[in-house]
C-alpha cells in the first residue's frame, strides 16, 4: 500500500494579505528525487510545508492517493531541531511520537544510528554535536521513521562542503532504498547530481515541471534560463 502519488491541485497560499503561492498544480510519483528549484522568495519552502501538512492551503487541494499518510512522510529542516537530550533519545522520541512502544523504539533508534555510522555519538547530548553531526542525526531520525516520502528543506545550506557531501550521500542512499525524495536546494551542482525531476518556482507560481535532463539542458522559460545562468540567484 502506497500513499503516492501526491496530487497538488490549484494550490494557493496567502499570509498577511500577501499572495505567496498561486495556482500550483503538479503530481508527485514514486521514484527518483524531485528537486524544487527557484530564486529566493519563490515559495519553495512554503510548498514543502504545504505538502508535508504543516500549513493548510488557502485555495486548492493537496491529496495523497493512499489517504492522508501523516505518518508516512517525514521532513528534515534547514536548521536541525534537536531536543536537549542525547542523540539516541532524540531518535527514540520521534519513534515514540509515531506510536512505537518503548523497547522497540529504543532498538530501532539504535539501529538507525548504526546504519549511518553514528553509534559512537548515541549518548552525546545532541545539542553539543557539530552542525554537520546534528543534520546527520536529523536525517537518521527521519530514516528511523521509515517514511515513504521525505521532504528536505535546504538540508545542506548551513554545512561545510565535507558535511554537505555526507548528507548528499545519505539522500542518495535513502533514494536507493525506495524513499521518494522531495527537496529544495540553492546548490545547482547538487541539484544536477540528485534530481530526476525538477519543479521550478518563480514568484509564487510553478512555471516549469520537467525531467531534470530536459530542464538543465533546455529550460523552456526565460525565468528558468536566467536562473540557470545565475542571473536570478540572489
Amino acid at each position: 500500500m502506497t500513499i503516492l502519488p501526491l496530487t497538488v491541485d490549484g494550490v494557493a497560499y496567502e499570509a498577511g494579505g500577501r499572495r505567496l503561492l498561486s495556482g500550483v498544480s503538479f503530481t508527485l510519483n514514486a521514484g527518483a528525487p524531485t528537486l524544487i528549484l527557484g530564486p529566493n522568495g519563490a515559495g519553495k519552502s512554503l510548498l514543502l510545508r504545504l505538502c508535508h501538512g504543516l500549513l493548510t492551503p488557502t485555495e486548492g487541494r493537496i491529496r495523497w492517493a493512499g489517504g492522508d499518510g501523516r505518518r508516512r512522510h517525514a521532513m528534515v529542516f534547514q536548521r536541525p531541531v534537536m531536543l536537549r537530550r542525547s542523540a539516541l533519545a532524540n531518535v527514540t522520541f520521534a519513534l515514540r511520537a509515531a506510536g512505537v512502544d518503548g523497547a522497540n523504539a529504543r532498538r530501532a533508534a539504535a539501529d538507525a544510528l548504526d546504519r549511518f555510522g553514528m553509534a559512537d555519538l548515541a549518548w552525546r547530548p545532541a545539542r553539543v554535536l557539530s552542525g554537520g553531526e546534528q543534520q546527520r542525526l536529523a536525517m537518521a531520525r527521519a530514516w528511523a521513521l521509515r517514511p515513504e516520502v521525505l521532504f528536505l528543506d535546504e538540508p545542506t545550506a548551513f554545512l561545510d562542503p565535507g558535511a554537505a557531501r555526507i548528507i548528499e550521500e545519505m539522500i542518495a542512499a535513502f533514494s536507493a532504498e525506495g524513499v521518494k525524495i522531495v527537496m529544495t536546494t540553492h546548490n545547482l551542482a547538487q541539484a544536477r547530481r540528485l534530481a530526476q525531476e525538477v519543479l521550478f518556482l518563480h514568484r509564487g507560481e510553478l512555471v516549469e515541471a520537467e525531467p531534470a535532463d530536459a530542464f538543465f539542458s533546455g529550460p523552456k522559460t526565460e525565468a528558468a534560463a536566467a536562473f540557470l545562468r545565475g542571473d536570478l540567484f540572489w
Binding site: L54, R71, A74, M75, F77, V81, R96, A97, A98, L145
Partner: peptide
Amino acid sequence: YEEQFRSLGVSMGS
C-alpha cells in the same frame, strides 16, 4: 520545537 514536533505528530500531552 513547534515545527519539528508538528512534523513528528507529537501529541499535546507529550
